[in-house]
Amino acid sequence: MELTLLRARKDLWFLSFHCFDRYLKLTFFRGQSLDPIPPEPSKSGDTRYFHIHEGEDFEAQLVDWVVQASKLPGERL
């Protein structure tokens, strides 16, 4: 498993992802603020997940979410 974070500003993060055998799990730290809200819930209040499986058409939605998320306040990890 690999964890990668995308940074909004120095020491502030808006997205991470984990690589698993069967899918890629994207973590949007302020996912409840995105439109539409990513489909997978989290135990953490504002965090939402999006799972990408091979062969799925996800690119347009992912670009939109990344643009939106990069404009929100980041998380200090």
Rank of each mutant, 00 (worst) to 15 (best):
L6W: 10
F20M: 08
W65C: 08
E75P: 02
L62N: 02
T4Y: 14
I52A: 01
I37H: 03
K10A: 06
R76D: 07
L5V: 07
I37W: 07
E56T: 11
E75K: 03
S70R: 01
G55I: 04
K71D: 09
S44T: 14
F50I: 05
A69K: 01
R9D: 05
P36C: 04
L15V: 02
S33V: 10
L6M: 08
L3G: 12
R9T: 02
P73M: 02
D64R: 11
E2Q: 14
D64S: 14
S70W: 00
S70Q: 09
W13H: 05
I37N: 10
Q61F: 08
D21W: 04
D64N: 08
C19M: 05
P36R: 05
L26W: 00
L3A: 09
W13S: 07
L26T: 04
K43D: 12
L15C: 04
G74A: 01
L77M: 13
L77K: 15
E2Y: 15
W65E: 01
F14M: 03
A69W: 00
S33R: 14
A8E: 07
L24H: 10
F29L: 04
E59S: 13
S16Y: 01
Q68H: 00
F58R: 06
V67G: 00
G74C: 06
M1D: 14
G45Q: 12
L12Q: 09
A69M: 01
K25R: 10
E54K: 10
I37T: 10
F14Q: 00
W13R: 03
F20N: 06
F20G: 03
F17K: 03
L3N: 14
D64W: 05
S44W: 10
E40S: 13
